[in-house]
Amino acid sequence: MADLATATRNAALTTRGGFAEVVLTPAPAASRLSLRAGADALPGLSAALGVTLPTRPKTSALSGKRHALWLGPDEWLLIDEGEGDLMAAAASSGTLHSSVDVSHRNVAVIVSGPGAEVAINSGCPQDLSLPIFPVGACSRTILGKVEIVLSRIAEDTFRVECWRSFSPYVFGMLSEGAADAGH
């Protein structure tokens, strides 16, 4: 058994894309947690996870390499771009909650550049102007025919999360949006 090689990861998306106005970059693998909990569990969970779980709609919190995205009144998506063990951290909180590892379920594309907003708006019906969707804003929404989780990580940079099998479609839609964003 010891001579067995550990299985290697195959990412769903590997190549970059985009244009001068908008660059599309597959995000590196990350740990992700679908976290569900009631209000009373939030202080304990926030302490255990090291990031304050936001309670306002369409907002997120960032602590180091750990993002906490508000998705619903009892639902957060945690993304850790480092080595942290989110499942263990949540379990250590001693609170009543549900944590489910979705690290491999989601794939992310980083959309950056001055045309990022327009590129995403080619298929996303939300108002992405800065006053309405500021840096740190996040939302589950629609891109074309599929569901995404959109978050704005800088004025001209968004993170688009989707389920793994939808990622080629999402990348394709964003590519077409990016192609038009420069015009």
């Binding site: 909650h97 489910v100 979705v102 379920r105």
Partner: peptide, 9 residues
Amino acid sequence: VWLTSTTEQ
């Protein structure tokens, strides 16, 4: 109780 889709996980 909470539900989470893990189809693609």
